[in-house]
Nucleic acid binder design. Structure first.
Length: 333
DNA sequence: GGGTTCCGCCGCCAAA
DNA sequence: TATTTGGCGGCGGAAC
């Protein structure tokens, strides 16, 4: 799973630049909009090789879309048959059957080399078409159980924003669709192009981490969140200092073992890992200013024992070293 | 870069 | 009896 893939040279643009978003009755407006925003807006600054975009439906219109819209679609099977990339936005329901014609069209497209990506519950369409069998995939955490039950042959990834299996890509909850689409732009046109699109969307070019942080934890979190919340704030406020576990547990008024358990319940991560994430986030912020501090100093401010330690973790998480990150950021905004 | 030490983390079990 | 808590031991990975 590439959460933050290594930056690569802008590769050759995909041979077939046509991206087709599917529409159907019960269409999820938000994810459909994500595809339009990333692939469908005119971007003359990207040059002549940029994506072409179209919308196709295999159902007669008008189609209903979430929010009370009615949609008329120009494209049909013929357009879909020409697509190099097919975007499948949220499906109308986890238990809604997927028409055979749609399944067949997707299988044919994939077999002739088209890439297929699903956003959120669009995963049910890919699954019905059999394109996920034996592959890794993800979806919104709400659909995880239903999908597992209906299609046990899929290797479900629970804690990621998206999964890239090459020709089949799946995204988690709605907004993770943005991350996946940006990832594809990065794959096709390189990091600079992805950053440019992200900037226009006003979203961060990279979001790391899984979706565990968005999963509500019914009872425990309310309680433990209230108990641990202030501690988390204090921890964030002193990232530059070492924060050994025993001291934290004492501060929380729990035994070490219980503290570990509660912390995990409340944040989704053990304390050490959580701290590391906070520190790396802080480091990234500090490196982003036009006149960012030197790496050595940033390391100190974020609580890394040495610049070497910072480099080690930074590179592993973000795929490039802190100095390179700062240079790139200063370079294009 | 490789070895040693240290620490975070978790499985397991007993106690509350 | 069931659920939560705390301690022990060990493993793996990070720091030095």
């Amino acid at each position: 799973v590439e959460i933050m893939p290594k930056p690569r040279r802008p590769g050759p643009p995909p041979a077939n630049r046509l991206v087709v978003a599917l529409a159907y009755d019960g269409l999820c407006t938000f994810e459909f909009g994500v595809a339009v925003e990333v692939f469908g807006l005119p971007r003359p600054e990207m040059g002549p090789d940029w994506y072409r975009f179209g919308v196709a439906s295999l159902e007669p219109g008008p189609l209903r879309a979430t929010g009370g819209l009615r949609v008329e679609v120009d494209g049909g099977a013929a357009l879909l048959a020409r697509a190099g990339t097919i975007v499948v936005p949220g499906w109308r329901g986890a238990s809604e059957p997927v028409p055979d014609a749609l399944c067949r069209a997707l299988r044919r497209a994939h077999a002739r080399g088209a890439r297929v990506l699903s956003l959120c519950s669009g995963v049910f369409v890919l699954a019905a078409a059999g394109l996920l069998e034996g592959r890794r995939a993800t979806t919104h955490w709400r659909y995880m159980d239903a999908l597992r039950r209906a299609h046990p042959g899929i290797a479900l990834e629970e804690d990621v924003l998206y999964v890239d299996e090459g020709s089949v890509l799946t995204a988690a909850g709605s907004a993770a669709g943005i991350d996946l689409c940006l990832h594809l732009v990065r794959r096709d046109f390189g990091p600079d192009a992805a950053n440019s699109v992200a900037r226009r969307l006003v979203v961060p070019p990279h979001r790391e981490g899984g979706q565990a942080q968005y999963v509500p934890r019914p009872v425990p979190t309310a309680r433990e969140g209230a108990r641990l919340g202030p501690l988390l704030d204090r921890m964030r406020a002193r990232l530059d200092r070492p924060q050994p576990l025993p001291a934290l547990a004492r501060e929380a008024g729990m035994s070490l073992r219980t503290f570990l358990r509660r912390f995990r319940d409340a944040t989704g991560h053990p304390p050490g890992e959580w701290l590391l994430r906070q520190r790396l986030d802080r480091a990234r912020e500090l490196l982003e200013g036009a006149r960012a501090a030197p790496v050595e100093e940033v390391a100190g401010l974020c609580g890394f024992g040495s610049a070497a330690t910072l480099r080690h973790h930074f590179r592993r998480r973000f795929g490039l070293g802190p100095a390179a990150y700062r240079a790139r950021f200063a370079g294009n905004g």
